[in-house]
Amino acid sequence: MITLSGVTKRHPGGQEAVRRLDLSVARGEFVLLTGHSGAGKSTVLKLMAGIERPTEGTVTVSGQDLGTIRSGALPYLRRNLGLVFQDHKLLLDRSVFDNVALPLRIAGFPGADIGKRVRAALDRVGLLDRERGDPVTLSGGEQQRVCIARAIVHRPAVVLADEPTANLDEAYALEIVGLFRRLHEVGVTLVVSTHSPTAFGDARVREVALRQGILVRSGEARA
């Protein structure tokens, strides 16, 4: 599903965020990217989403090489991904409903479908009663759940989440982990970066550890 072969990402200053990384994520797999700050977890997720291009090596998502893909084709590839950001990236001048509906509007879904799917996604993250609410009035955990609802509303095959439990207290973090487990159970491929893997303690999760951009440990792939 996702393959990184000999990938190096060098920033303009010459600093290498990722070094000669080889990693494969199978369809339906739940991969945890672990490591300290600066280990390269976010860069790996950005490479997988086509937000960053590799300096060396190849990144392939659903058979498409992101190094050679036309820039015009990239948005269509991203529509098959669900992205969860550490800083949520919610639009604060829009309601919760409108934030979650954004991927559907971009993909050109009809209005009636949008309503149904947004409510279903909000129901899934337990925020159906907040659909008309203002994101700024939500707690950090609720904002993260809105972000997850936005990532899954268009039912993507792959969800990439960058530190989704960071800055959340334990109870909220467990809620988010529970959500990801439920997504995994319905066949969604998940790649989640975290510096606290214990919260995800589950035999069906593969942990991939990074240190200073180098892969130091990779569990066995299991769907």
């Binding site: 989403a49 015009g72 948005p75 992205l83 990236k89 639009l91 954004l102 991927p103 971009i106 936005r150």
Partner: peptide, 16 residues
């Protein structure tokens, strides 16, 4: 700016 960046991240084309 923020809206445009988020929209591009989640699959908006330049035409959109």
């Amino acid at each position: 700016r923020e809206e445009i960046e988020v929209s591009k991240l989640i699959g908006a084309t330049n035409a959109f």
